[in-house]
Design a protein around this nucleic acid. Structure first.
Lengths: 334, 334
DNA sequence: TTGGCAAGTTGTTTAAGGGTAACCATAATA
DNA sequence: TATTATGGTTACCCTTAAACAACTTGCCAA
């Protein structure tokens, strides 16, 4: 890589002349600017990012810590983050906490050494279970703003982007009740997450307020065989409606229902939180609650950059953006 | 963030004394080292990464450019990359080319300003179609090594990590022939990618060598309704076996077959390139060719770091690692 | 007409950002 | 006096920008 120094030497001018010329300074003559720019173009000169970061004390880089890159929703948020960040000229350093508190702490600490200007993150499962937030507060205390999305810690003062989980599931459940369903089950593989809890509460409220049945909840851990458990759930409870808290469960519920001879949606209706992609993995397609994951990512970036740009350290109040889900009617409901 | 300067001032020693003390230099007295370390710990001092990068002319950061983060396979490779990189103390900056040549070029150029020590990438669809490789060669020429995985450019001299696509599909096809299938279709949504072509060739070879049928290929573009097209394919051709080049097609093929009243695997056998996760989205589960995506990522990191560590610019020969797929028998084959 | 000075033009010097390390300095010890 | 232990000075990585320097030009007065 060419440096200013090399250009300066070849042009027989000082380093700063080259620097200023390339930055179109008023202090440098037109022809000099032209000479400099030509040589710079010839050598494909690009200002060294590291030196710039050091000088300006900002890296134009965002640290992103996500619990699981194989989760389609989280991957999509990451996509949104990357796209929006690129728009603003920011790069992203991605760390995967793998749902582990330890890895999350490490990543946060590792990047809090000047590598990034701030963080966008969703909290690891273990962290949520243990309810640890000290590491977040520490980072914020060091002057590194954090924006949390989806899985957030309510007792950390920072910007947040969340989804109307409670309302979405509440409404979806009521929809199945309106269809005339009388035995609606709730399937979740994420019952220990903040969002999982919210969704279950939305289901519970709708059931308790608007029906005579009792809540009927199937919780599946990540290590269990979900096809097997869902099959057993169907056969034991004879449900005629299913609300799935996560994307995979909804699709698997449909496939299972069909497999044991039920007709969807005649015998069983299914609604799930899901993307278009996953919804396509069953016939009929899963009627879905869409989370607009890319918008969530984009909003997180906007919040973070806004905070990075405000010069006065006097923190303006933190804000929470709620990205409303939308409902996509597909073949798995009446 | 505390700096050496601040520590030095508070301790009434010089900056370099602090630096040396923290690095356990022989030149500094035991008690001084102790004093320094205690204060550093108190203030949670961490060497500024940016300054270090500038000084040492390496960032311990890898630029990763992937075409599509929503592709489960690519996401999993990214996961492997991140994990392995973390092991070696490397961070990753992720760029998503979104299958666009322009974005790929931009990302490459943007990071080639000292932001990263090297690249790991899989080539964008558009790039493969247009067969452009100049930007890769340019980066390598600038001293930034590249490791390509999965979708590679054979006329760029760099390390590569690939999969035995041809053999895997060839063997899978022969397996269906051994089952006694006589009308085996091939479904692909990636026919314009290098890997897609290899897979189709593997299918063709097996069919032409070992059967009397003609190759029967269904190509689906990303914008088309795959459920619809696969259904039409089934109804038109009455296939009794399906080889799917990508993960989604296999699952959708099974669901479609069941939907039109066929029995899987009695009437139709299906084999696809697929992960465990996606294979779970059909009943029976998809018999799969596993790509060991995480291993691919890990191997790419190893190759890159190995190249970064060799001091002599005299490039050792580039190497290509082939990560063998494995075959997972599930319910969708006899 | 020309000397002198202010102002403008165009660069250069230098410090700074945070860290490391080669090299140098000082005091105590052998 | 030479050596050792300990620590300080300084240069360097690359860039920017404030401060400074040098040269040209313009204008006025002698």
């Amino acid at each position: 890589m060419v440096t200013l120094k090399q250009l300066a030497k070849e042009l027989n001018v000082s380093i700063s002349t080259v620097s200023k010329a390339l930055n179109n300074s008023e202090e440098i003559g037109e022809d000099t600017i032209k000479r400099v720019k030509e040589l710079a173009a010839l050598y494909n000169y690009k200002p060294n990012k590291v030196a710039l970061s050091l000088k300006q004390n900002k890296t134009k880089t965002i640290g992103v810590i996500i619990p699981d890159i194989l989760n389609y929703f989280l991957a999509k948020v990451l996509f949104g983050i990357e796209m929006e960040a690129a728009l603003y000229g920011y790069n992203i350093i991605t760390c995967i906490s793998n749902e582990s508190l330890e890895k999350e702490k490490e990543s946060l600490q590792l990047l809090a050494n000047g590598s990034v200007d701030g963080f966008i993150l969703s909290i690891a499962q273990e962290t949520q279970i243990k309810n640890e937030v000290a590491h977040f507060k520490k980072a914020i205390g060091q002057g590194l703003p954090i924006v949390m999305f989806d899985r957030v810690a309510h007792d950390v003062l920072c910007d947040k982007v969340i989804v109307d989980d409670f309302d979405a599931i509440y409404n979806a459940t009521k929809l199945l009740l309106l269809e005339g369903r009388t035995k609606i089950g709730f399937i979740s593989t994420i019952d220990d997450l903040s969002v999982g809890k919210l969704r279950e509460r939305g289901y519970n409220k709708a059931i308790l307020e608007n029906s005579n049945q009792n809540p009927l909840v199937l919780r599946i851990s990540k290590t269990e065989d979900s096809q097997f458990k869902i099959k057993a759930f169907f056969e034991t409870n004879h449900v005629d409606g299913v609300i799935a808290a996560d994307s995979a469960s909804g699709v698997i519920a449909i496939n299972t229902a069909i497999n044991i001879g039920l007709h969807v949606p005649k015998d069983v209706s299914v609604i799930g939180f899901s993307s278009n992609y996953i919804a396509n993995h069953s016939i009929p397609r899963l009627t879905s609650i869409r989370q607009h994951a890319r918008d969530i990512g984009a909003n997180a970036v906007q919040l973070l950059i806004k905070r990075l740009q405000q010069k006065n350290d006097a923190d303006t109040d933190v804000s929470t953006r709620i990205i409303k889900t939308s409902f996509v009617k597909n073949g798995s409901t009446l």
